[in-house]
Every structure is written in C-alpha cells, then in structure tokens.
C-alpha cells in the first residue's frame, strides 16, 4: 500500500513535468522535421528550417535589435538594481519602504497594462516607436529582479566587512568597489544574465511600444498571427536555447556561490 501510494505520487509528479515540458520538446523535435506542416508522422531529419531562418533578413534584424536592447537593459537594470539593493541593505530611513515599493512594483502590474501605460507615456515624451522606448520599458521591469538577486547576496555579507574597510581608512565609495562589489559579484553576474533573458523574451510591452524596428519576440508574434510556417519552430528553438543558457548559468552561479 505504502509503495503503491509512492508510485502514484511519483508518476503524477512526472506527468506534471511532462506537461510543462511537452511544448518545448515538441518544438525542438519539429524544428528538425522536414515536413512543412508540424504534424505527425515525422517525415525525416532536416536543417531546412534553420537555413530559412538565417536567410530571412527581417528575423536577423529583429534578433540583433533584441540582443542590443537586452544587453543594454541588463547593464542598466543591474546597476540600478545594485544601488537599490545596497540602499535597502545599508540604511533605515522614513519612507524607505514606500520608495522600495515603487522600485519593485513593476512586475506585479500586468504586462498589458504596463504596455499601454508606457505607450501613452512614451508618445507624450516623443520616444514612442523607437528602440529607446523598448529599452526604457524593459529596464523598469528588470530592475526589481536584479535588486532581489543582489539583495539576497548582500544579506549574506557580514556587516563587519565594510566596517573593517572604513576603519582601515577606505572611503565609502572605495569600499563599495573594493568590498561590496567583489562580495556581490556572483549575484551581479546572475542578475545580468537573468535580466538579459527577461528582456530578450519580453514581447507584450515591446509589441505596444515598438514601431518599424521590432524585437525578435514581436517578430515571432506577427509570424504567429500570419500563416503557419515551420520556421517558427526553428526560431523558437534558438530563442529557447538562448534563454535556457542564460537562466541555467544564472542559477548555477547563485547555487555555487551560496556554498
């Protein structure tokens, strides 16, 4: 009886994981299928769809723009996230929680509302339909994630570390660069990776605020709204591989640095 329950539990857990990963596995499998329509039976291995993707300038342009935005967003968000995390770690002052709330609130707002708000706002300040608008919108969304990751790492930093540096005559700013940043380095790298992945993958806000130059996920969305093409499987697999590498490296760094 005990055994039976255990087997039942394990199979249910596996079933749920299969459900979560089925679309990803199917996507990768069909990206190598030679058939034009992604359906069974499997008609043979082919790299045709990947060749088609790399031959499409609109996809390559979108890909390059996505990378450019993701990298600039990650640097900005990690820098500002670090400052926010350090503020929370170092000081107590009236109104700090309210200010902190403003910084970390964006991910709780539905992307569609955020997209609309950003579109309204960017239009007024003349940044609508420009990659700069996507950059700004993504940065506010990514800062809270960077802040959280770095704040977690700061919580493990003994306060004596900074005090020792000050006593030895190291200035405040220098202490940041010589003590705090080195201690937080794993978290900073993880934050860079996570925010890159977030921005690289975000399509809702980008769809709202972009103009002619679109990011890769927005390009995928327009492809999806058009006719079925097996090349979507290939783009999807590439996008998935990139996100997976970014996120798994970030997780590996976080886990490794906590040991």
């Amino acid at each position: 009886m005990e055994r039976l329950i255990r087997v039942g539990q394990v199979s249910f857990v596996c079933l749920v994981f299969c459900f979560i990963y089925l679309p990803i596995v199917s996507l990768i499998a069909f990206s190598f299928n030679s058939n034009r329509f992604p359906s069974l039976p499997w008609t043979g291995f082919s790299l045709h769809w990947y060749n088609e993707v790399f031959a499409d300038p609109s996809i390559i342009d979108a890909f390059v723009l996505s990378i450019l935005i993701a990298v600039s967003v990650s640097v900005t968000a990690t820098l500002l996230g670090f400052l926010g995390a350090y503020m929370d770690y170092r000081w107590r002052f009236t109104g700090k929680n309210a200010l902190l709330a403003i910084i970390i609130l964006p991910p709780t707002i539905p992307l569609i509302v955020l997209g609309l708000a950003m579109l309204n706002f960017l239009k007024q300040v003349g940044l609508a339909a420009s990659p700069l608008g996507i950059f700004v919108s993504h940065s506010i969304l990514c800062i809270p994630f960077a802040l959280a990751v770095i704040r977690m790492r700061l919580a493990d930093m003994p306060p004596e570390l900074e005090q020792a540096a000050w006593n030895l005559g190291c200035g405040q700013t220098r202490t940041i660069f010589k003590v705090v940043v080195p201690h937080c380095l794993p978290a900073i790298i993880a934050a860079l990776l996570i925010t890159t992945a977030l921005s690289f993958d975000e399509f809702m806000i980008a769809w709202f605020v972009s103009g002619v130059d679109v990011t890769l996920p927005v390009r995928i969305l327009t492809l999806l709204q058009g006719q079925v093409s097996a090349s979507i499987n290939a783009i999807g697999s590439i996008v998935f591989a990139i996100s997976l590498i970014l996120i798994s490296s970030a997780l590996a760094i976080i886990v490794w640095s906590r040991k």
């Binding site: 679309p23 996507l27 996570i194 977030l198 399509f203 995928i220 999806l224 996100s243 997976l244 996120i247």
Partner: peptide, 8 residues
C-alpha cells in the same frame, strides 16, 4: 523565464 510565446 523562457519563451512564453514560443511555448504557446
């Protein structure tokens, strides 16, 4: 963190 749209 991965490809919500693509999974859809």
């Amino acid at each position: 963190f991965t490809s919500y749209l693509v999974r859809t």
